[in-house]
């Protein structure tokens, strides 16, 4: 198989509040011989909030980000579900509306850029599970996560809305996603089945309504814990911030003691590939990852 190569859109979170996500992504890509070209020109995607204030501005900025992947002739890979949503949504809207595309391109022309619609937008999860494939990953597992009970928390924006998750981004059912479950098993761990794996963590109302956010996170985390999970893994840094950094507030809201490590998806993969925990930034997780030496 030809070497996999992508344009990496890091998003803001991986450069600021979850640096361990970027670190572990780069470490895992290197170990799996995947080439990632950083899109240093890219701006913030607007995180589904700028979209509430200024639609045209958000479309233009996201289109500009995609243009830089197009210039490299590469598929853009995201490592945040909400970056994936906003970028893929922009692509979907521009590719299906000539007038809108022309409007956006009129603005981009001021800085000598043009959106063509040539690059696919894909979350790193699907680059691993679909493009590289579970068999290829399995072959490189040197430290199987045997006896670890891990629960997958998918995060909304990588599975909904369905029309954005066609074949180039996994194309799995939002009602019964399986990609992370299968990855967990491929890494030698035990996949924990629980109802809330495809539910919402509440991140996007954390400031204006922390009660809603904490209740939603608690529902999911307690469901995972009650089904035997000793760690939760997520492909989204926003879900991670919510359930890792805010864990004490979630526990308080739920009235139960909650102590459960939250792994970023590449941290979990990296551990199984035998990458040193420090190279995966495990010590930067706020909730101790107790089973890692």
């Amino acid at each position: 198989m030809a070497k996999l190569k992508y344009a990496l859109y890091t998003g803001c979170t991986a450069r600021e509040s979850t640096p361990e996500l970027l670190k572990s992504t780069l470490a895992v890509a290197k170990a799996l011989d995947i080439e990632l070209v950083l899109l240093d020109e890219a701006s913030c995607c607007g995180a589904a909030h700028l979209q509430d204030f200024d639609d045209m501005l958000s479309l233009t900025l996201n289109a500009r980000n995609i243009v830089y992947a197009e210039k490299l002739g590469l598929t853009m890979v995201t490592i945040c579900n909400t970056c994936q949503l906003n970028t893929a949504m922009t692509k979907y809207r521009l590719d299906n509306d000539e007038k809108l595309k022309a409007d956006v391109n009129e603005r981009l022309a001021e800085v000598n850029l043009e959106y063509k619609g040539e690059s696919e937008i894909k979350h790193f999860l699907y680059a691993l599970v679909e493009d590289l494939g579970l068999e290829a990953i399995k072959e490189k597992v040197v430290n199987p996560l045997t006896n670890r009970d891990i629960a997958a928390f998918y995060g909304c924006h990588n599975i909904r809305p369905q029309e954005l998750h066609h074949s180039s981004n996994g194309g799995e059912s939002s009602y019964k996603p399986t990609s992370i479950d299968r990855l967990i098993v491929a890494l030698g761990a035990k996949n924990v089945e629980y109802e809330h794996k495809n539910k919402c963590c509440g991140f996007h109302v954390e400031l204006q309504n922390p009660k809603t956010a904490n209740k939603l996170s608690a529902n999911a985390m307690l469901d995972a814990i009650d089904n035997g999970a000793e760690a939760i893994v997520t492909p989204c840094p926003l879900c991670h911030l919510r359930m890792d950094v805010q864990q004490h507030n979630i526990a308080k809201e739920s009235g139960r003691d909650i102590h459960i490590p939250l792994l970023h998806l590449p941290q979990m993969v990296g551990l199984a590939l035998g990458i040193a925990p420090t190279d995966l930034g495990i010590e930067q997780n706020v909730t101790d990852v107790s089973f890692v030496e």
């Binding site: 200024d54 639609d55 930067q284």
Partner: peptide, 28 residues
């Protein structure tokens, strides 16, 4: 845990001038 970037270390996008131009012209 090293999860806060100090204002003086805040990373900036490359070609920031383009972004500034677009924020001005594309804002509605």
């Amino acid at each position: 845990k090293g999860k806060i970037v100090m204002p003086w270390n805040m990373p900036k996008s490359k070609n920031l001038d383009e972004i500034k131009t677009l924020v001005k012209s594309a804002s509605t």
